[in-house]
Design a protein around this nucleic acid. Structure first.
Length: 549
DNA sequence: ATGTGC
C-alpha cells in the first residue's frame, strides 16, 4: 500500500514533532470519516499531547488547510503540518509554493451525461484548474476518468503558463489510421485468426541504430533521442496501447472521396513516445515544481524537447504501421523495410520511398497528449457550414482577429479537432472503444453554439475512457471470466481476435473495464461538438506477443 | 505508461 510520509508538529512549539504515514486510502475530504485531517488530529493528540487540535497549517508557508482542495494540493512527501489549538500560524507567512496566479474562478465543464464520470476525476479536473497558475478554461471530455493526480480525458487552457504534468509522461501519444489493401473477405469471420497469426516479428528493436536514426529524420530535422530510447521506436508499448485491424462497417465521409469507405480494411495504431517522453517529464519537473512561466529558459527548453518527443511518437506510429503492413501485405516490396532483415538497397532512398507510400495510406494522425500554443478564443473556420464562417478569409481555426491572444492548450487523453500543422478542421478522427468494441468515426463540428470550439477547448474524447481502475478490472474481471477465453470471438458473432500474451493486460484492458463508446459518442453529439460519420468493427487487436527472438 | 521504484 503506498503511503505518504509527512511530519506533524505543534504550531506553538514547532520543535515538537512526529512522523506520520498517511495511507493512500485516507481521504483529502475533511468531512470524510477517514479524512487525512482526522489522522493528523489524532497524531497530534496521541504523539504530541495536544488536547484540542482545531486548525492545521502548512509549515513554511502558513497556509491553513480547510477545504478538500487545500488538502489535495498539500499532501506530499515530507510536508510539515502544524497543528494549532486555535491560535494563528506561528511564523512568517510566505507566498504559496506555486508562484503566479491561480484562478479559483476558472470555468470547469464536463461534457458528459450519458457516459459515467467518476467523481474523483471531476475533483481532479477542478482542483488543477483552480490551483495551477494561469488556467483559464478546463474541459472534461465524456471519457474523463481519474488519473494518478490529474485526470485523463481532460483539456486545460492556460495563459502565460505551461504545466507539463497536465499532459503526463507519454508526450506525443496519439492515434493514426492507415488504409490497407486487404479486403473485408480476407479478414472477416475466422480469417481474423489467420491474420492474427501473420502478425509476427513486431516486438523488440527495429533494425540498427543507424537505421532508426534515418527513420527519425523528418522535415524538421532529426528527432532521435539517442540509442537508449530509440531502441523502442516501432514498438507499441504497454497499457492501453494497441494496433488494430478494422473493417469499415458504415461511412458517410464523402469529403473529396478521402476518408475510409465502407468495407475498407484499415489499421489503427495507438502509441506514444515510449520511455523518451517520460524521461523529459522527469528531467524538468519535480513534485513541487510543475509549472513553467512563459518565456522562461526552462519552459523553452521543455517545449523544445516536448515538440521533439511529439515528432518521435509520430515516427513511432508510422514505423509500427510499416511493420504491420509488412506482415499484412507481404507482396508489397516497399514494406520489406519494416522487417528486421539487412538492407539490400540504399537505406535513405528506401525510407523516402516508403514515406511517400505511407503518406498515401494515412487517413489521419493526431496527438492526444501534448501542449499546443494556439490563438484564443477560436475563430470560425471557413470549412464550416454556417454563414458566419464567410467572415474569415484565412480558412484557419486561429484566424487573425485582434481580440485574440495566445494560450496553451494542454491535452491529456483528448484529441484535437483540427490539423495541428495546417490549423484546418479535421475531417475524420477515431474514437476507439476498448479492445474489440467498435471504433466510431468522428467529425468535429464547429458552430456558434460551441463558440467555434471554445466549449470543448478545440478537443474531443480520445477513446471510451476507463470505467474501472486497472486494479479493480484485474481482480473482478479475472474472476468473472475465469472460464472464458477473452482472446477469441465469443459465440457465433463476428468478434475480435486478440493477440495479448500479457495475462494481466487481458483483464485490465477488457471492454468491461471501459465506458461504452456509444455513450461517449452520444455525449459529444449532444454537446454539439462532433458528429458520428461511421463506425468500424475490430477484427484483430494486437497488444503484445511474447515470441522467441 | 514506464529500461518504473523501494
Amino acid at each position: 500500500m503506498p503511503a505518504t510520509r509527512v511530519t506533524v508538529a505543534l504550531n506553538a512549539k514547532q520543535s515538537q514533532k512526529a512522523p506520520l504515514l498517511v495511507p493512500a486510502s485516507a481521504s483529502p475530504d475533511p468531512s470524510s470519516a477517514a479524512s487525512i485531517q482526522s489522522l493528523v488530529f489524532k497524531a497530534a493528540q496521541s504523539k504530541l499531547r495536544l488536547k484540542k487540535p482545531s486548525r492545521i497549517y502548512v509549515g513554511g508557508t502558513g497556509e491553513e488547510l480547510i477545504t478538500e482542495a487545500d488538502w489535495k494540493s498539500t499532501i506530499r512527501r515530507d510536508v510539515t503540518l502544524l497543528v494549532s489549538a486555535g491560535e494563528e500560524y506561528v511564523g512568517v507567512k510566505k507566498e504559496s509554493v506555486t508562484p503566479g496566479e491561480a484562478n479559483p474562478e476558472c470555468a470547469v465543464h464536463v461534457l458528459a451525461e450519458k457516459a459515467h464520470v467518476d467523481e474523483l476525476s471531476v475533483t481532479q479536473l477542478a482542483t488543477a484548474a483552480h490551483t495551477l497558475p494561469g488556467i483559464i478554461h478546463a474541459v472534461g471530455q465524456p471519457d474523463l476518468h481519474p488519473g494518478n493526480k490529474f485526470p485523463i480525458g481532460a483539456v486545460f487552457v492556460s495563459r502565460k503558463w505551461v504545466h507539463p504534468p497536465l499532459i503526463g509522461g507519454d508526450i506525443g501519444c496519439g492515434m493514426a489510421w492507415y488504409k490497407t489493401t486487404l479486403s473485408r473477405n480476407q479478414v472477416d469471420g475466422d480469417k481474423g485468426k489467420r491474420i492474427a497469426e501473420k502478425l509476427r516479428g513486431l516486438e523488440g528493436p527495429w533494425r540498427t541504430q543507424a537505421d532508426r536514426e534515418a527513420w527519425l529524420q523528418d522535415a524538421a530535422g532529426s528527432c532521435s533521442a539517442g540509442e537508449e530510447w530509440d531502441q523502442a521506436v516501432g514498438t507499441i508499448g504497454a497499457g492501453n496501447h494497441f494496433a488494430e485491424i478494422q473493417v469499415v462497417e458504415e461511412s458517410c465521409t464523402s469529403i473529396d472521396g478521402v476518408g475510409p469507405h465502407k468495407d475498407d480494411v484499415i489499421l489503427l495504431v495507438h502509441s506514444g513516445s515510449r520511455g523518451y517522453g517520460g524521461s523529459i517529464l522527469k528531467k524538468y519537473t519535480t513534485e513541487s515544481h510543475i509549472s513553467f512561466e512563459e518565456d522562461s529558459e526552462q519552459m523553452k527548453a521543455y517545449m523544445e524537447e516536448h515538440d521533439k518527443a511529439c515528432r518521435w511518437a509520430k515516427a513511432n506510429r508510422d514505423l509500427i504501421a510499416l511493420r504491420f503492413l509488412s506482415c499484412l501485405e507481404p507482396g508489397e516490396e516497399a514494406w520489406d523495410l519494416g522487417r528486421n532483415i539487412p538492407n539490400s538497397v540504399n537505406l535513405d532512398s528506401a525510407i523516402s520511398g516508403v514515406r511517400a507510400k505511407m503518406l498515401q495510406r494515412k487517413v489521419v494522425d493526431i496527438w492526444h497528449n501534448n501542449v499546443e500554443r494556439v490563438k484564443w478564443p477560436p475563430c470560425p473556420p471557413t470549412g464550416s457550414t454556417s454563414g458566419a464562417a464567410k467572415k474569415t478569409s484565412t480558412g484557419l481555426i486561429e484566424g487573425g482577429e485582434s481580440f485574440q491572444d495566445y494560450v496553451y492548450v494542454h491535452r491529456k487523453g483528448a484529441a484535437p479537432t483540427y490539423n495541428a500543422s495546417t490549423n484546418l478542421p479535421l475531417d475524420i478522427l477515431p474514437l476507439p472503444g476498448s479492445r474489440g468494441t467498435p471504433t466510431l468515426m468522428l467529425k468535429p463540428v464547429f458552430s456558434a453554439e460551441t463558440c467555434w470550439g471554445l466549449k470543448n477547448a478545440l478537443s474531443l474524447a480520445h477513446g471510451a475512457g476507463r470505467s474501472m481502475s486497472r486494479a479493480k478490472a484485474l481482480s473482478s474481471l479475472s474472476r468473472k471470466y475465469r472460464d472464458r477465453n477473452l482472446l477469441e470471438p465469443s459465440g457465433a458473432e463476428d468478434g475480435t481476435w486478440v493477440v495479448c500474451d500479457e495475462k494481466d493486460l487481458v483483464f485490465e484492458e477488457a471492454p468491461d473495464a471501459y465506458k461504452d463508446v456509444h455513450a461517449v459518442g452520444e455525449d459529444l453529439v449532444r454537446e454539439g461538438v462532433a458528429e458520428v460519420v461511421g463506425w468500424c468493427k475490430a477484427r484483430v487487436s494486437y497488444k503484445v506477443r511474447h515470441e522467441r527472438r
